[in-house]
Design a protein around this nucleic acid. Sequence first.
DNA 1: ATAATTAATCGTAAAAATACGATGAAATGA
DNA 2: TCATTTCATCGTATTTTTACGATTAATTAT
Lengths: 110, 110
Amino acid sequence: MAAPKLEEFLKAEQELAQFAKALSHPARIAILKVLASKTECVCGEIVEVLPLAQSTVSQHLKELKEAGLIKGTVDGPRSCYCINWKAFEKFNQSFNQLFSKLKVQQQSCC
Amino acid sequence: MAAPKLEEFLKAEQELAQFAKALSHPARIAILKVLASKTECVCGEIVEVLPLAQSTVSQHLKELKEAGLIKGTVDGPRSCYCINWKAFEKFNQSFNQLFSKLKVQQQSCC
DNA sequence: ATAATTAATCGTAAAAATACGATGAAATGA
DNA sequence: TCATTTCATCGTATTTTTACGATTAATTAT
């Protein structure tokens, strides 16, 4: 087998892993930064800034969208994207939860 | 081309993406939780808990180690792993930095 | 009506990730 | 010394990811 055995893990672990996967490529982090810095968030502008082909950027946008981190609306011939702050906040909290949970007993045996 | 074009992005983005990649599989999150909850962190115990083969767990441990999130020491015939709290703290901060940076202008255009 | 712009999707190739069994190395125990 | 335990590594199969060019669909501009 080669597909990840996701089902066998806790739902919280799966969810967080999925979120982390969305951030696991610098292009997607860069996209989030662009979206956060602009009020106008047209796809073309993102493509201009990134060192990737239009189709590749579109793919990354799709992944961010599927992960729930961004929203997209069609505006005439162009697409407007922006951060889904609600989901983002949840994401942020999930991470902090993991971090603080792990940090409870901060001791190393080796 | 198929390999990710990492070089062309900011170093901070690459670093964070790499960290996120380490967390992008539930098995690795589960491993971190186990390590945090035990003072004795022998490889075998992790294998016992996870629904994966020994060799697969070993592989995940290697990835966490390469990402800097855990340390490993040989203890006779067994291997002792534990969280690298220093790196972990840095990781935690990088994430919070990104989150707070993005949150500066929390407005959606669409 | 036709051309141009914009961005999604398709097809595809190459690489990386995931998983497992088998093997190997190193230390302990009998 | 020889068997056992423990875990890393190797070999390999399958899936997923990444990337790009080409095409398509939709809207706008001429």
